[in-house]
Simulated assay, not measured.
Amino acid sequence: SMREAGRGRIVLISSAAGVRGMPATAPYSAVKGALERWGESMAGEIGPFGIGVTILVTGTYDTEIITDAGTTDVRDLDGPYARHHRTMDKLGRAMMKRAARPPEKFAAGLAKALESPKPFVKTAVGPDARMLLLANRLLPAAGLHQMTRLMMGIPRFGALREKGTADG
């Protein structure tokens, strides 16, 4: 085991959704965020044994995650969130065509992460992931929320209220 050897590295794969909650993917964002907090906590526990933890925040890579073949969620494209899901699907597919990097680039980033001598590292793999980590450090949460909302085409607060509600 790594403890017996007195060395090793655990690499956890996160994504933009682990850095900030992303619209229309709440369960995925929650799991990736929890994964990041687990890695941070675990690093403190296993570091004294010589075992490090790396969290890789991945950018956009040419995989099937955004396509029907890679989507296993149960999005209701006819329900109240249909507009969100259609927008996310359209933007996601466009981003895959325009900005996706080859999987080999991710593999190179993973290999580099395995070489780190540090007890804890959170690093981006891909230019879009690097930009997100930078924005996350520079912008307040509310600012990043608005930026994400605009980039994802999510309507403004209250825009989908039913007519006749107390505020509408």
Rank of each mutant, 00 (worst) to 15 (best):
A30Y: 01
M152D: 12
L56Y: 02
R130P: 03
R130Y: 03
V121M: 11
V74I: 11
K122P: 08
D167M: 12
E45L: 06
R161M: 13
G70A: 09
L77Q: 09
F106E: 03
M147G: 07
D76N: 15
A100D: 05
P155Q: 04
E36A: 10
L134S: 03
L12H: 05
P127R: 11
Q146T: 04
T87L: 07
Y81H: 14
L150F: 11
T87P: 02
A108D: 13
H145Y: 09
S14Q: 15
E40P: 13
V121E: 15
T72L: 11
A108R: 12
I46W: 05
L12E: 04
K163L: 14
I66K: 02
S29A: 08
T67S: 12
L12K: 07
P27W: 09
A135Y: 03
P140K: 02
K118W: 00
M147N: 01
A141F: 04
I55T: 12
A26E: 08
A34V: 03
A24F: 05
E162R: 15
S14Y: 07
W38G: 12
R37P: 09
P27N: 10
P80V: 14
T63W: 00
V31A: 13
I51W: 10
K163I: 14
P140T: 01
A34P: 05
A99I: 04
S29H: 05
A124I: 01
I154M: 15
G158K: 11
K90E: 13
